[in-house]
């Protein structure tokens, strides 16, 4: 009987831990677009968009990197609402199923040392602080102010046949 109670306790704890781990993983995947908080800060110069994006992670450094990646992800899949003196910016990829249809491409593109990093430049000097670095539960929520090289990113995705060109078909 004692062994049975021990087994049930261990199994319950293991299940709970596995659940927590899976939840953390979900927060950082590029595909979970509903998670991304991002907005236009101001109008960028030729070909760039000035964006502020947020991300969660167990430490601020990791959250900062995820926030930068989220800015690129939002530019590709979600676009940005009007704000900061700019009109609305639509998603580069207009096909809502593009992330699953081109999963292999995006898995490679968004891996930690993937090409996404070429298309984002941080405007923060060092790590964000104050209201841009919040302690939430056991982790951190960090907001990164970045310049996304929007036109270069769009061109790369168009050349890779992921995004549709404006003059496609003509």
């Amino acid at each position: 009987m004692k062994r049975l109670i021990q087994f049930i306790t261990i199994a319950t704890l293991a299940y709970g831990m596995a659940g927590c781990a899976a939840k953390k993983e979900l927060m950082i995947t590029y595909g979970s677009n509903h998670n991304i908080e991002s907005q236009i800060i101001s109008v960028g110069k030729d070909g760039t968009k000035m964006i502020k994006a947020w991300a969660f992670a167990k430490n601020p450094e990791l959250a900062f990197m995820y926030a930068k990646r989220n800015a690129v992800s939002a530019a590709i899949f979600k676009g940005f609402p009007a704000g900061g003196g700019s009109g609305m910016v639509g998603a580069i990829v207009r096909n809502p199923n593009a992330d699953t249809e081109h999963k292999a491409f995006f898995d490679e593109f968004f891996k930690d040392d993937g090409k996404w990093a070429q298309y984002v430049v941080s405007k923060n000097v060092g790590m964000p602080s104050g209201n841009d670095r919040l302690k939430v539960g056991k982790g951190y929520k960090v907001g990164a102010s970045v310049a996304v090289k929007f036109d270069a990113l769009r061109k790369y995705l168009e050349d890779s046949n992921i995004a549709k060109k404006l003059d496609e078909g003509f």
Binding site: V43, G44, K45, D46, G79, A82, G85, S86, G87, M88, V89, G90, R94, F150, K164, L166, E168, G169, F170
Partner: peptide, 22 residues
């Protein structure tokens, strides 16, 4: 800035028009 701020929105709508035509 005014041009840069609004051209993406304009082109997005233009693309919807072309997609509709195709």
């Amino acid at each position: 800035e005014a041009v840069l701020a609004y051209m993406d929105e304009f082109n997005g709508r233009l693309m919807s028009f072309f997609e509709d035509a195709f």
